[in-house]
Amino acid sequence: MSSSNQTLVTYFILSGISNVPELQLPIFLVVLLTYLVTLWGNMTIFLLVCLDRHLHTPMYFFLCNLSILDMSSSTITMHRIFFSFLTGDTTISFFACLAQMYIFASLTTDELLLLTIMSYDRYMAICSPLRYHTVMSLKFCSKLTAICWAIGFIQVLPLVVMLSSITCFKSIEINHFFCDIMPLIALPCGDISALELFNFVNGLILAVLPFFLTFIPYIFIVNAILKIRSSTGRRKTFYTCSSHLTVIILLYTSLVCQYLQPGSTTSKASSKLYSLFNTAAVPLLNPLIYSLKNKDVKEALKRRRRLLS
């Protein structure tokens, strides 16, 4: 669709992960396997936290919410790959595209904010252990989590409203496998500076700010660890937050690679690969990191197996 044709756009065409026909089946199988393992891993964490009273603590309450976010963000993006492969239909309606962008962006923000709260939970547990259970009560944690979910689903609404009012697009093809923000806001005809400015400010507030707020507690955590005289004590204390720190580094690294890319064709192709890693691999790795490195989770799994045997 040319920029001169200003008819109402009712659908977009998703280019997918790769245009090479020979790669479609291998990609579908890899993504499907990754998605199924992601659901299995995160659902296991979710059920363990809900069913095992030993995991009814603030840390695992937040981890339970993280599992919900990972399953949701993976589903909202991966289902388009499955649908397109099985039906051959690569189109998506205009409003379905906006809905997918809105939900994915909201869930991503929710996850960044949740990881920020989890870093302060680790700070309280290590630096103020005597006040931990008083401050980090279930009621307080529930309120913090509810605020995170609310902010995530409110902050993208203005961008959705702005995009929904646009009728002229330079192209109806989105060079991506789902409706992500960056490829979508580049399509409207004319001046898109307002969209870009809003997206920049929004990202600055809800991505860069949480990044700093997430890592500030670790300055105090590291300082507290260094004051521990016993090397065994230092390792044990660091072990309690190593899983969370690993997840933070993994997520922010994938987001930087995905969105801070120049606008060349090669960079757009690599951006899709980073996006696939962020939407498929990261939700898969999160439960593995927490289960493999976490003694409480492994013991909870053993208790469940004994009950089922």
Rank of each mutant, 00 (worst) to 15 (best):
F220T: 01
V161F: 11
Y252D: 12
L273F: 13
I147D: 08
T7A: 15
K236N: 14
I147L: 05
V161Y: 07
N65K: 03
V201N: 07
P283A: 14
Q261P: 04
L308D: 13
A105Y: 09
S242T: 04
L8R: 10
S84Q: 03
N5Y: 14
I192Y: 02
S137Y: 04
I68E: 00
P287K: 07
V9Y: 02
F215N: 08
L23A: 15
I174A: 11
V222Q: 15
Y123T: 02
Q100V: 04
R305P: 00
T34A: 11
V222G: 10
M101F: 13
N202R: 13
F178Y: 11
P217D: 00
E111Q: 15
I248Q: 15
I174N: 06
L251I: 09
E111P: 15
I192H: 05
C141A: 07
L115E: 12
E173L: 11
P158R: 12
P183Q: 07
V160D: 02
F12M: 03
L114N: 09
L39S: 01
S243R: 02
S264P: 15
F153L: 10
A186V: 04
F104E: 09
G190T: 00
A105P: 02
E22T: 12
Y274H: 06
D180G: 13
T237G: 08
N65S: 06
F82D: 02
Y102C: 13
L138I: 14
L33C: 10
L251Q: 06
T232N: 14
P26N: 00
A96F: 03
T214C: 11
I225A: 14
S264H: 13
M71I: 06
T77M: 14
G203V: 14
S243Y: 00
R80D: 01
K139L: 08
L308W: 11
T253V: 04
D52F: 00
G233R: 10
C64M: 02
L144W: 01
T134W: 11
L8F: 11
T38S: 02
N175C: 15
